[in-house]
Design a protein around this nucleic acid. Structure first.
Lengths: 359, 359
DNA sequence: CACTATGTCTGCATCGTTGCAGAGCCCTCA
DNA sequence: TGAGGGCTCTGCAACGATGCAGACATAGTG
C-alpha cells in the first residue's frame, strides 16, 4: 500500500535523498546527467511525494475547511462551489463539513479533539454557535465567518447588507401597489439575528412608504426550507384578510410558499406576489420564476477566501466586517412577465456566467 | 500561531514527552497524581494535538475525498451530504472537490503532484475520465467509483441499475396510455455510458410493450442541466408530431422541460407527461411536482463508504459491482394528482426522514 | 532474603520530508 | 602554483507525534 519514498528513489539512483528532493522540487542546481538519472528512478518507481510529511515539515496543510449547516440546501451548495473555486485559485483545497444546524456539531469543531487543527483556516457559517462562544475557545486557527448572524467584532465576517436587501425586496412589492405584504421567516430569538435583520428591513420599507405593519403578517419559521414556507403560507391564507404579497427570507421558503399558493388555487403573482432571497438557480426555472435578492456569491466566496488567506499569512489586522453587494432580480413571481426566459433564450456560447440573470 | 507541542507541555509538567502523549491518548497506566499534573499543564497551555504529525506517524489521514462534477447540481449536493454523514459515522472527514466536468481537472487527480496522496481513499464520480485511464495510472490510493459510467471491472463501483430504472420510468408513461414518449438526455459517445444505459432501458420498455421507437423523439444533450432540458423540449415541440410524454435522464432536465412546456402554454401532465430521475428535493415542490426514479442515495453513500473503508483496511477482494435499489415515485407530472401534498401535510414531528415521499 | 512480577515512567528511533551548513571538485586568475 | 569562487551534491537535524524496549521502584512470592 505504502508507495516508494525519497529514500527508495535515492537508493535506486545512487544519489542522496536530498538530491532527489531537489529534483522533485526543482530546487538547487542539479547537473543534467544526474537529473536524468534521478528522473528515471522517479518514473520507474512512480514516486509520489507524501504530502502529509511535507505538510508537517512546512507547518501548513494547504487545506481550509468550509463548514455549513446543510450542504444540500442550494444556497450553501452554490456557495460551496464558489468557495472551492476561489480556494483552488490560491492553491488550497477545501474540506466541506456540515453541522445539520446542530449546535453540538458546531461546538465539536472547537473542541480539543477537533480536526480543525489540520486546516490552515476555517470558513464558518454558524447557525447556533454564537460569536461569544467562538471567541471563548481560544482558537488557534484563523476563522472567517460567512453570511449568517450579526457578529461582535471578534472575527472577520463576510455578508451582504441584510437590512438593505430586505428593505429593497419589500419596497419592490409595495411599489407594485401591494398593500398587505407578509413576511415569512422571522426568528425572534437569540440565534436568529440574520432573520431579525431582514424583519427590520421589512419594517423600514413600510415606514418609508408611510404604511403600518400588520403584525399578523409576520410569520416566524424555525428553519428555512420549502416545507416551512408552505406551512407559513397556509397560515397566512387562513387569515381573515390574507396578504396580497409575501417577502420570504430565502428562496426555499418562497418556493414552498408558491407551492402552497398554487395548491390553494391562487395565482402568482396575480393574487399574491412572492419575493425570495439568495437567487438559487432553481428560482430561475420555477413556475412562475422567482423574483429574488441576489447576493454576489462569487464575491462572498472570493472575499472570504482572500481575508482568510491574509490571516493565514499572518496579517494581524483587526477583524473586518465585509459587506458584499446584492441586487434585486425581478422575475415572474412579482411582475408576471419577464423580457425573455432563460428557458427560451438559446444558450450563449461565451457566457462564462453560470445561470442567466436579467433585470 | 503555532500552538504548544507535547514538548512544551512536558516541560511545564516536568514529565517526559511520552507521558504527556500517554495522558492525551489515555494509553498505558499513569498514576493519578501525575495524570492530574499533566492534565493541568495541558489545560493551561490549551494543548491541541497536531493531527498532521499524528497522521504522518500513523500512515493514515482519516480523510477521504469525494470528487464530483458539480457540487451545486442538487443530486451531487444531496449525495455529498449522505457521503459526509456516512463517513463521519466511521470517523472520517470528507474533502469535497469538483471538476466542473472538465476532463483535465479529473486527470489532475491522478497526476504526480495531486493531493490525492493525502487521502486514505477516493470516491470518484467521473464524467470524462475512463476507467482505462484510471487504471493506467497505477494509483496507490483505494478508489470507489460512484454512479456514472459503465466500468470494466477494475474498480469497485456503486450505482443503481440504470437500464431497469429507465425501463420502469418509460413503462410508467406507456402504461398511462401515452404513445409518443420522448427521451431527453442521450449521449451517444464515449463518455456517455450512463446515458446510453438509460436509452437502452427506454428502448426495452418500448419493445416489451410491442411499440416502435420514433428515433426523432430521442434528443441528446451535452449536459444534464435545466437549460438543456428546456432547449431539448423546445426542439421536440417543434416536431410535426410532438410527444405526449417525456422521460428525462435526470430531474434537472425534467424541470427545464416542464418550464419550456409551461411557457409554450402546454399543461403538464394533460398535454405532456414528464418523468425525471434522481429524486432531488426540488421535484417535490415544483409545479407540478415531478414523477421520478429515486435512487437510494443514503444507500449509495453508505455502500460506497463501506467498500472504501474495506479497501483502506487492506481487504483485497476483487472489485465489486454494487447495485443499489431505486424506485419509481409517482407525482403530479404524470398523473396530475397525488394523494396528499407535502406542502399541505403538516410537519411530522418525529419524522427523521428529510423530504417526504409517497408512492 | 533473593527473585520475579507488576506498575510507572522514560528515551530513542521513526514516519517522509525539507532547511541548513558544508564538503568536494573544477575552474579561474593573480 | 595556490587562493578564491562557483557549482554540485551530501549529511544531519528537525517538524510533532507514536511504537518499542527498557529503566526504575515497588510489591509479591517461595
Amino acid at each position: 500500500m505504502a508507495g516508494p519514498t525519497l529514500r527508495d528513489v535515492a537508493k535506486r539512483a545512487n544519489v542522496s535523498i536530498r538530491t532527489v528532493s531537489n529534483v522533485v522540487n526543482g530546487y538547487a542546481p542539479v547537473s543534467d546527467e544526474l537529473r536524468a538519472r534521478v528522473q528515471a528512478a522517479l518514473d520507474e518507481l512512480d514516486y509520489r511525494p507524501n504530502l502529509i510529511a511535507r505538510n508537517l515539515k512546512q507547518g501548513r496543510s494547504g487545506m481550509i475547511a468550509l463548514v455549513v449547516p446543510e450542504l444540500d440546501v442550494p444556497y450553501f451548495a452554490e456557495l460551496a462551489r464558489e468557495v472551492i473555486t476561489a480556494a483552488r485559485a490560491r492553491g488550497y483545497v477545501v474540506m466541506v463539513d456540515q453541522t445539520d444546524g446542530d449546535g453540538e456539531r458546531e461546538r465539536e469543531l472547537l473542541g480539543r479533539d477537533s480536526r480543525a487543527t489540520m486546516f490552515d483556516g476555517l470558513l464558518l457559517s454558524p447557525l447556533s454557535v454564537s460569536a461569544e462562544e467562538l471567541r471563548a475557545r481560544g482558537n488557534r486557527v484563523p476563522i472567517v465567518l460567512l453570511g449568517e448572524h450579526i457578529f461582535n467584532g471578534s472575527f472577520h465576517h463576510v455578508a451582504i447588507d441584510n437590512v438593505a436587501a430586505a428593505r429593497e425586496a419589500t419596497a419592490h412589492l409595495l411599489g407594485l401597489g401591494r398593500r398587505r405584504v407578509a413576511a415569512i421567516g422571522d426568528q425572534p430569538y437569540a440565534t436568529g439575528e440574520t432573520a431579525q435583520l431582514r424583519t427590520s428591513g421589512y419594517r423600514q420599507a413600510h415606514v418609508r412608504a408611510g404604511l403600518e405593519v400588520d403584525e399578523r403578517l409576520i410569520v416566524p419559521t424555525p428553519r428555512f426550507h420549502r416545507r416551512q414556507g408552505a406551512t407559513a403560507m397556509e397560515q397566512l391564507l387562513a387569515l381573515p384578510e390574507p396578504p396580497d404579497a409575501v417577502f420570504c427570507y430565502n428562496d426555499l421558503l418562497a418556493l414552498g410558499a408558491m407551492r402552497a399558493l398554487t395548491r390553494a388555487g391562487l395565482r402568482v403573482p396575480d393574487d399574491v406576489a412572492v419575493v425570495g432571497m439568495d437567487d438559487i438557480e432553481e428560482g430561475q426555472y420555477s413556475t412562475p420564476s422567482l423574483t429574488t435578492i441576489a447576493p454576489d456569491k462569487k464575491e462572498i466566496a472570493r472575499m472570504a477566501v482572500d481575508v482568510l488567506m491574509e490571516s493565514i499569512g499572518g496579517a494581524a489586522r483587526p477583524p473586518a466586517e465585509i459587506v458584499v453587494p446584492h441586487r434585486l432580480i425581478v422575475r415572474e413571481s412579482t411582475t408576471g412577465q419577464v423580457p425573455a426566459s432563460p428557458a427560451i433564450r438559446p444558450e450563449e456560447p461565451g457566457a462564462g456566467e453560470r445561470g442567466q440573470r436579467y433585470v
